[in-house]
Amino acid sequence: MSIASIAAPHRPPRRPWAWLWLFGASQLLMLALWWRFGWAAGLLAMLVSHGAMFWGTLWPRSRLFGPVLARLPTQARAMWLTIDDGPSDDTPAMLDLLDAYGAKATFFLVAERAAARPQLAREIVRRGHGIGNHSQSHPQAWFWALGPGRMAAEIEQAQAGLRAVTGVTPRWFRAVVGMANPFVSASLKKLALARVAWSARGFDGVRGEPDSVVARIVADFRPGAIVLLHEGAPHGNNVAIVEGVLRAMKDAGYVAVVPE
């Protein structure tokens, strides 16, 4: 199989506020149970409904608030490499590695960082890789809890900024730390962005031991896997980790494809 694009469902949210009606209905049900069966039943219903909202926000592959792609629909020995958090000092070396292995990837860029290093963002595009929206400023600690106004600004300003810097309009969005609260979907629908999660990760954003990180990712190699990688982490080993993943893919007969 040659390296090429692969068909994948590009599904922006269709009903970004459906969750609000469902949540409202669940609260009416809670009140009815409280009235009919007492406080214990009502409290249990409240915990279940609020727990579902937290699960939908914190679990990266949750579809509670809208579609999310976690695996490519193929049985071929092909995977999608996705690299978050750039551009960074690691970007040139990663581009050289991808060239050396004849691999393509999608870089989910932080728009503020792309604006600060426009030549790197444009070089990613020039070498034939994809660009994804990974927020305007990467508010790692609080992205999951942003309100509707700030959430819209993070996604929509990033879309405009990345288009201005690279000349490319991103089609894919990845939530910061993978956590997407109910307010994400409205902007995704407006911008025709589809949300992407992953099916293989090694926690390389925080862990810097190349051998153990690569081994964890390799354990999740599957046809159609979406591999989560990072660049620019403080531990300084992201380039070595990407090289290890590329080598393991080659040894296992996998190729890197992008659904662009």
Rank of each mutant, 00 (worst) to 15 (best):
Q119I: 02
E231L: 02
G130P: 02
G178Q: 06
W17T: 15
G130N: 06
A115L: 12
S5C: 12
A194C: 01
F107V: 00
L33I: 07
V165E: 13
M249T: 08
P13D: 07
R247S: 15
E260D: 12
P92L: 10
L120K: 08
F23W: 11
P223E: 04
G205A: 14
A186F: 01
I131Q: 04
A160G: 11
L188V: 07
L146A: 00
A197Q: 08
L193K: 02
H138R: 09
S5R: 11
Q27M: 09
R127K: 10
A252R: 15
G86R: 04
A116Q: 15
V68C: 10
A4V: 03
A52V: 15
Q27Y: 07
E260L: 12
S88W: 01
L44M: 13
P170I: 05
F173K: 05
A197D: 11
L120D: 10
R117T: 13
R222H: 11
L81D: 03
S135Q: 00
A76W: 11
W59R: 14
R163P: 01
V168S: 00
P148C: 13
S2A: 13
L72W: 00
R247V: 10
S49P: 02
A52N: 05
L72S: 04
S49L: 05
E156K: 10
F108R: 00
F54R: 10
V168E: 10
V255T: 15
